[in-house]
Design a binder for these strands. Sequence first.
DNA 1: GCGGCCTTTTGATCCATGTCAAGACTCGTG
DNA 2: CACGAGTCTTGACATGGATCAAAAGGCCGC
Lengths: 247, 247
Amino acid sequence: MSAQSSLTPIDIAKLRNACSTCSVRELCLPAGLDLQELAQVDKMVNRRRPVRRGDYLYRAGTELQSLYAIRSGFIKSAVLHEDGREQVAGFHMTGDLLGLDAISAGRHLCDAVALEDTEVCDIPFALLERLAREIPSLQSHFNRIMSREIVRDHGVMLLLGSMRAEERLAAFLLNLSQRFATRGYSSTEFNLRMTREEIGSYLGLKLETISRVLSRFQQEGLIQVRNRYLKINDADALRRLVGHCES
Amino acid sequence: MSAQSSLTPIDIAKLRNACSTCSVRELCLPAGLDLQELAQVDKMVNRRRPVRRGDYLYRAGTELQSLYAIRSGFIKSAVLHEDGREQVAGFHMTGDLLGLDAISAGRHLCDAVALEDTEVCDIPFALLERLAREIPSLQSHFNRIMSREIVRDHGVMLLLGSMRAEERLAAFLLNLSQRFATRGYSSTEFNLRMTREEIGSYLGLKLETISRVLSRFQQEGLIQVRNRYLKINDADALRRLVGHCES
DNA sequence: GCGGCCTTTTGATCCATGTCAAGACTCGTG
DNA sequence: CACGAGTCTTGACATGGATCAAAAGGCCGC
């Protein structure tokens, strides 16, 4: 199916570059593209865009133009209630693909805000659909990405529906830890990019509860926290806390 | 793109039949298929399968073979914790497509159990992917279905994360009501297919709470309940209760 | 039609988390 | 360097929903 075996080292380097520089390894690396396909993908994803801390990547209600792959940085997505409350739907980091929920209605249903200076790759959705039509493995991979998002959401539902505050926060920290590890950063030491309030919103808890539970974890020696800095001392203990509920 | 204009009345009848009899109007109706495509879809979806009340459609851990479109009946999907607790992830009725979360890992991650005698259409996933490759509008539609599932999940997350018991139950009843209406049934009078415990699991509440809130709604004249029978007297009041949080 | 099991209702009490409030810390800016 | 806004911590108290318990009602097989 693929002409992968005919790739020269230069092609491979180019491919690797196209993927890693644009954080679409998520999207194209496992797809097994040939040279021509590569050129197409190259064209598609070579539209970088910086988003400064506090700026919106997109807002609820706007038309879906592109999906966005995070090249670097940190973004939260959130739905806004009419009464001003906001519910954080997810935190996204390097390599994550944003905007999937907009495909359904053709317009975004949540806001995406950068929590630190961020660079994304702009992936025009129409172009992606067209390309995926021509490159079956790309389509197949895209299906899996969508499905993975559904699985992730089910995990959050489980967390919100059946875990207590301590369990939720432990699960959250472990999840962050693991995602940093996957990206080559320390799994035990990192800076939170979000406020206690945002964590609380995501976990269905109030900011005071987040603060209290973090303090308790620290007292018990499981972690060290100071403001946004966080160090995990005893990941196993956290895992035991989460106990029977893995997402 | 499509040869739709060349369809004879007979073809159209056949198409309508293929769709309505198998509850894949969800999947194929909006796709604008031509005759040959129709034949292919026909082949794909003409595998019906009955599932008796209490039986599993699939179990967590089993390999993904097919997606399932519900032709009639009622199915719950649930993830099982190691400790035996279960978390209901969704209730599904006629026309719904099940199994999307399995695409990610190639195996099912939750159980699907029939809450009443049910008939589903078996849609081999490999075949669906192949067909979608040949019929762009089918692929496009499938993307939207996946996205819609993500949107639905976000709605549940919002409900679990930021609504109180009364609001959750009101939202749940309105959602059921609306889905029955869409399918041509009464929006105000229907039988619940699930136990209080299952509702509670879905909404992140205990069965006693469900029972109590239902009783309270009844006292206030919003609904009438007797066992599984439910009648909505004042949908507007329920909507006001849910207030600012629409999913 | 009876007996047993599952589901539902309702009451009493408890507890985890929310709410309210005060003060401390942090960081960016004038 | 001081100020002020935003963020975080901690305490006291309130409360929604969980838990425990008992009894009633419905359903199914015999």
